[in-house]
Design a protein around this nucleic acid. Structure first.
Length: 605
RNA sequence: CGGGGCGUAGCACAGCCUGGUAGUGCGCUCGGUUUGGGACCGAGAGGUCGUAGGUUCGAAUCCUAUCGCCCCGACCA
């Protein structure tokens, strides 16, 4: 490929709209251009890289026996209505009508479509297991697209689905995928950590996320520095030291607290209490749907005063109470001030659950057994002290609803402390169980001749996120440093002045020989100054450069430059091709096998 | 959806407050000099000032509406 004729629109200046480093570099290096919010065109360099990533994924999927499909991106509404997700997905789903007024959507994911194929074609346990996958565009009308390719509205996903007869089969399929994912991310040059995760709208029993530590990430991961425990904070647990509450008071005692509105206020208020000896009372509203009906249900969430609420955990805890009689919780939100006053008869700042029974009360596990606590009296400007949680409060449900904090003890080992770091999700694997096979009727006969629902799993990878994550991880002031496995080209050959016939002739020869040898080589034959060409090559981040300049060529040498190590080395011009090929092969092999698991966050700046 | 910011040439921006000639740098075209880390000189091309309406003799500039994009909070690959 000749650069003079290849479309690589590099930018000298930083694009004003880009915030995160991968976004800036993808634009500057001429890989992507924006069409709309969260909608990007992939230019030739990006397309080459994405195809290489896709092929790595394809190879590893095939290696664990998965079979490649290609499903429609446009889905009739009925399938999503059957699974119940037509309403659950809400505004996140792109919807459209056909000429006859029929409802359709653009696929956000493909459980429904795959399950539809499975229920029509799978009849017997003898056909199982099946593992099906595809690499295809997904459409999600994100409320807030951002950060270049990190959060977009159209993206490419590898999505795989497994169908097994029993739990043991699912465990095997899940482990196969997990193994394949490790290989995929390692081969793509990512350092990642596997974490326990929330299942969210996907449903199911268990899930693992593959996370890349980066400050551009939007998730928080808690990990132990002693053992291999790691979890999304939406799921993470921790051990906390017991607190000495003293002897339980015989009964709660009301006392006036004029002007006290917050936990902190009460800490400093005379006769108040330390934050960890207070009960924080939050009012939330669960929003649920049933067909076209919707309803809002306010409820209480209780936490230790110094503990932050985790909304995902709370949503999961309350869902079990809300989801009855066909009602399906779609969201939770903090209650508005008027709703609080109506339910509690008091304003935020003086709320408490003692003697309260008008709504569900979800209490955090950390409050179990606590006595002598202080909380709002549910009367403006008054609090209660001497509260014994289990004696004085009617708790509907105990649950873990707090977020863990840095420095708390690992739930998995004796001595470890948790660290919390920002991370980007690049893959997510789920044990779905029978959620879709039940709702959509995918059943087979087992060996006893009995009809049973198929046990499913689903497994997703964001293809462009791998590209963006690799750039987030591998870059410097000069630009991208591509891992060779996903680089658009493996090497660039650069005669520093193409008007110099001698340099040009050597460049032509080296380029042809590399090309003949099957190396992915780009030939920078542009009539530009050396500085422009070298800066562009650094910016795009090809792993290697072969620079042909007049001084060294007089000595019969050319310069071999390693973008990652910044080391250059003079090679005899007549052996440069052979040596370069060896280097490229070495690098490719190393990339394919090096374990690249990282259990600890990078230090935050 | 709540909050903040921005829409002027391909890119980055100035001009707006205080209404009157459309401007700078980079990039692009042509000519010349230059050639190992984003050259220099000269001559050019290129803009419905996001869109619509209003105020005014006159609007990039003031007013109203609207669309779009970016960033901060609740969702996910």
């Amino acid at each position: 490929m000749h650069w003079s004729n290849y479309f690589i629109p590099t930018l000298r200046e930083e694009p004003a709209d880009a915030e995160v480093v991968s976004h800036k570099l993808l634009l500057r290096a001429g890989l992507i251009r924006q069409l709309g919010a969260g909608i990007y065109s992939y230019l030739p360099l990006a397309q080459r890289s994405v195809l290489k990533i896709s092929n790595i994924i394809r190879e590893e999927m095939n290696a664990v026996g998965a079979q490649e499909f290609y499903l429609p991106a446009i889905h009739p509404a009925e399938y999503w209505q059957e699974s119940g997700r037509w309403s659950i997905m809400g505004d996140n789903m792109f919807r459209l009508k056909d000429r006859k007024g029929g409802d359709y959507c653009l696929g956000m994911t493909h459980e429904e479509v795959m399950t539809d194929i499975a229920r029509h074609e799978l009849r017997s346990y003898k056909q199982l297991p099946q593992v099906w996958y595809q690499i295809q565009s997904k459409f999600r009308d994100e409320p807030r697209p951002k950060s270049g390719l990190l959060r977009v509205r159209q993206f490419t996903m590898k999505d795989a689905y497994s169908f097994d007869i029993d739990q043991a089969g699912l465990d095997k399929s899940f482990d196969d995928q997990r193994h394949a994912y490790c290989r995929i991310f390692s081969r793509c040059g990512l350092e990642y950590v596997i974490v326990e995760a929330d299942t969210g709208a996907m449903g199911g029993s268990a899930s693992n996320e593959f996370m890349v530590y980066t400050n551009a990430g939007e998730d928080l991961v808690a990990s132990c520095h002693e053992c291999d425990y790691a979890a999304n904070v939406e799921k993470a647990k921790s051990r906390i030291p017991a607190i000495d509450d003293g002897a339980a008071a015989s009964a709660p005692e009301k006392f006036p607290t004029p002007g006290v509105r917050t936990i902190d206020d009460l800490v400093t208020f005379p006769g108040g209490a330390a934050a960890d000896r207070q009960i924080k009372t939050l009012i939330y509203v669960s929003v649920a749907e049933k067909g076209n009906d919707a309803r809002s249900t306010p409820f209480l969430a209780l936490l230790r005063g110094d503990h932050p609420l985790n909304e995902v955990k709370l949503a999961n805890a309350i869902a079990g109470l809300v989801n009855t009689d066909g009602w399906e919780q779609t969201a939770i939100r903090p209650a508005h001030a008027e709703e609080i006053l109506e339910l509690m008869g008091a304003n935020a700042g003086s709320l408490g659950a003692v003697g309260f029974s008008k709504a569900w009360v979800i209490a955090d596990e950390a409050l179990r057994g606590r006595v002598n606590m202080t909380t709002g009296a549910n009367e403006d400007d008054h609090h209660l002290r001497g509260v014994s949680v289990e004696r004085d409060i009617k708790v509907t449900k105990w649950a873990d609803i707090r977020s863990v904090a840095e420095g708390e003890s690992c739930p998995n080992c004796d001595s470890g402390k948790l660290q919390v770091g920002k991370a980007l999700e690049v893959g997510h694997i789920f044990k779905l169980g029978t959620k879709y096979s039940n709702s959509m009727g995918a059943r087979v006969l087992n060996s006893d001749g009995k009809e049973v629902p198929v046990i499913m799993g689903c497994y997703g990878i964001g293809v462009e996120r791998i590209l963006a994550a690799a750039i987030e991880m591998h870059n410097d002031d000069a630009g991208i440093i591509f891992p060779i496995t996903i680089a658009p080209f493996q090497i660039v050959v650069t005669p520093l002045n193409v008007r110099d016939a001698e340099l040009k002739a050597v460049g032509d020869r080296i380029y042809s020989e590399l090309h003949e040898a099957g190396i992915e080589v780009l030939y920078d034959d542009r009539d530009e100054r050396a500085g422009v060409k070298l800066n562009d090559a650094d910016l795009v981040g090809f792993p290697f450069q072969l620079r042909i300049g007049p001084k060294k060529l007089k000595e019969g040498k050319v310069e071999f430059y390693d973008r990652r190590t910044k080391q250059s080395e003079d090679l005899p011009a007549d052996q440069a091709v052979k040596i370069a090929i060896d280097r490229i092969h070495d690098e490719l092999n190393e990339g394919a096998h090096a374990p690249r698991v990282r259990n600890q966050p990078r230090l935050l700046e």
